[in-house]
């Protein structure tokens, strides 16, 4: 008996390691995905060590040094219309964008996974939950987020909530699809015949087997979340001044496009790079985890 358990455990570990290694190996073959990973790593490092990388606080104004161009002494990315250091603002903006991205994706995943599991597992709930999801689907994404913000009021926290609600139907649909196919597998039947509870089957047996599509979805969703946060802040519905949010920075710089274009271009490039990175890493993960898998 005891030997059997040991081998089972050993086998499990071996399998886990190899799945991870295998995925990484396949990821590293994909050049674009590697570039994406590098950009994301840089962003995380910037966000984590922001105070050590900058010599100015992001909201310290120097009214005598307004609108300095890129390459000025002491401000290599220049300053904005209040004389705030652009580099500091970009670095602290990286922190905001990663936190908002993670927060809204995590919230969306929690809601989406639970609803997806329930509707995939219980046929009776399926109709109800999926109709509610269809209702949410009937709004173009950013419109749904704007509607939620209109109700909750404008702030960065509400943007996180709005974007997570917008992620729920997408996530639920993907999880439900995976649950439907996983439900038919024999090991689930075996668990059921052993008398395992529904909850145990759902969370202990089905969920670990459908992590691949969820991870891919989450990565791709990060890109959407960051882009939407910037879009909403650009529209004045998200971060409020003096928060150094990239979208808000673009909106503030817009009036200075003709005289100080760096105020819009620099945060614009930052958004572009990060969104690009999460998209290619998501693509890479999808190919690496399961070449046959399809996401809608």
């Amino acid at each position: 008996m005891s030997t059997q358990t040991v081998t089972a455990k050993g086998l499990k570990n071996v399998e886990k390691d190899s799945v991870f290694k295998d995925t990484m190996k396949r990821m590293l073959k994909n050049k674009l995905a590697v570039i994406g990973l590098v950009i994301i790593t840089i962003q995380i490092l910037l966000a984590a060590f922001a105070p050590f990388l900058t010599s100015y606080a992001p909201d310290t104004q120097t009214l005598s040094a307004r609108e300095l161009p890129i390459g000025s002494e002491g401000h290599w990315l220049g300053t904005d219309n209040y004389g705030r250091d652009m580099w500091s603002r970009i670095v602290y903006g990286a922190r905001i964008s990663i936190l908002v991205g993670l927060g809204s994706v995590a919230l969306g995943l929690i809601g989406g996974v639970i609803l997806g599991l329930l509707s995939g597992y219980y046929k009776k709930l399926d109709a109800i939950i999926m109709r509610i999801m269809d209702l949410l689907f009937s709004f173009p994404g950013i419109l749904l987020a704007m509607l939620i913000i209109a109700i909750l009021g404008t702030s960065l926290v509400n943007v996180v909530i709005a974007i997570s609600i917008w992620s729920i139907p997408n996530c639920a649909r993907i999880v439900r699809g995976s649950v439907l196919s996983a439900k038919k597998e024999e090991y689930i039947l075996a668990q059921r015949s052993l008398g395992a509870s529904d909850r145990r089957i759902m969370f202990k047996h089905i969920l670990p087997n459908i992590t691949a599509p969820i991870i891919v979805f989450a990565t791709m969703r990060m890109a959407t979340a960051i882009l939407s946060t910037s879009a909403l802040s650009y529209l004045g519905l998200g971060a409020q001044p003096p928060t150094p949010e990239w979208g808000a920075m673009i909106a503030a710089g817009q009036d200075y496009m003709w005289t100080s274009p760096h105020m819009t271009i620099v945060p614009g490039i930052a958004i572009m790079l990060v969104v690009f990175a999460f998209n290619v890493v998501g693509d890479g993960l999808r190919d690496a985890l399961d070449p046959n898998m399809e996401l809608d």
């Binding site: 173009p140 994404g141 950013i142 419109l143 704007m146 879009a231 650009y234 529209l235 817009q254």
Partner: peptide, 14 residues
């Protein structure tokens, strides 16, 4: 079409 509708909101603002 949905993305476009969302996009128009930003474009109109810009």
């Amino acid at each position: 079409f949905g993305f476009l509708l969302g996009g128009t909101i930003i474009t109109e603002q810009v």
